[in-house]
Design a protein around this nucleic acid. Structure first.
Length: 290
DNA sequence: GCCCAGGAGTGTG
DNA sequence: CACACTCATGGG
């Protein structure tokens, strides 16, 4: 059964929010709506003027709550933009066409695995690896759609089986993380401040500076986190003449952008990809028919 | 076929 | 600390 609901959420642009590489399981439908599994439901989102239309299968009353959490409805994004714009003119220009981009909130475990898989892979492939794990180890929500496997479900994965999921060298990292991490660890991680959290995350195999920052930002909601990948290195070099180690660039970013550095990162990241030839073409998958 | 990907781990200078 | 090399593979 399907239920529908509406909420008011502004600013919000679904393409900018769901199609920019913070999350890997949303697909654009031909009519401009976006569809993806969220917890135990298949959610379809579309905009009707300023209102967000939510369709959920199988419908439950808490679909609104799930979506509001995912889109961080409690954040005053306009105020964040104002704060950042007053602080930095370059970011102010960069956010001009991205007013509807919201940083999302992912499940911590799903986020950790997703970005551990994201090393040295392009976005379409990351989506495919996650999809393979979901189909093999997750739970079927509706026909053909699977939730991301829980930690408990991933603990059942044997390494030889994981190695046949197209993960490449990442299979052994995912296996080790799944084997050694507990729900208690994740619960303790939630109570840590940013710096301690990223140190704990970096203790996990396959998790370095950049992955730890992505997980802190998108999974644990640390808006001060500023993940630096190859695109951000290019951006910081091009726009701020900053080069050097991760630690040096991160220190610059935190000094420059402050408590909402994560939003600044998204604006700069998006602009850098749009600026490069073919830079933006690999963002979002187009959903296959059928 | 060729190139490179929202890097990390390990070893060396 | 900085750099070089390797890792395993698929999508463009």
């Amino acid at each position: 059964m399907t239920t529908t609901a509406e909420i008011q959420l502004s600013p919000l642009n679904l393409q900018q929010t769901l199609g920019c590489g913070q999350t890997f399981r949303w697909s654009a439908l031909p009519d401009g709506s976006w569809q993806g599994p969220l917890r135990d439901q298949l959610i379809t989102l579309s905009m009707s003027r300023e209102r967000l239309l939510i369709r959920s299968i199988p419908g439950t009353r808490n679909a609104k709550t799930i979506v509001r959490s995912h889109l961080r409805a409690g954040d005053d994004v306009a105020a964040i933009q104002k704060t950042l714009a007053e602080r930095d003119a370059v970011v102010a220009r960069g956010m001009h066409n991205l007013k509807g981009l919201r940083i999302v909130r992912l499940d911590e475990w799903e986020c950790l695995v997703s970005f551990a898989l994201a090393t040295y892979a392009n976005i379409p492939r990351i989506s495919k690896m996650i999809e393979t794990l979901a189909r093999r180890y997750g739970t079927e929500i509706v026909s053909g759609v699977y939730s991301f496997p829980t930690l408990e479900q991933m603990k059942r994965a044997r390494l030889p089986d994981l190695s046949r999921c197209g993960l490449g060298y990442r299979a052994k990292y995912i296996h080790s993380i799944s084997s050694n991490l507990s729900e208690g660890d994740l619960a303790r991680f939630k109570r840590l401040p940013y710096d301690d959290l990223r140190e704990k995350l970096k203790e996990l195999p396959g998790v370095g500076d950049k992955v730890a920052d992505c997980v802190a930002l998108f999974g644990f909601g640390k808006l001060e986190s500023f993940p630096i990948d190859v695109w951000m290195e290019r951006s910081l070099a091009r726009l701020y003449k900053q080069k050097g180690s991760y630690a040096k660039l991160a220190a610059f970013a935190h000094e420059r952008f402050g408590e909402f550095a994560g939003y600044a990162q998204e604006y700069l990241y998006y602009n850098e990809r749009a600026h490069a030839p073919n830079g933006a073409c690999m963002f979002s998958k187009q959903r296959r028919d059928g």
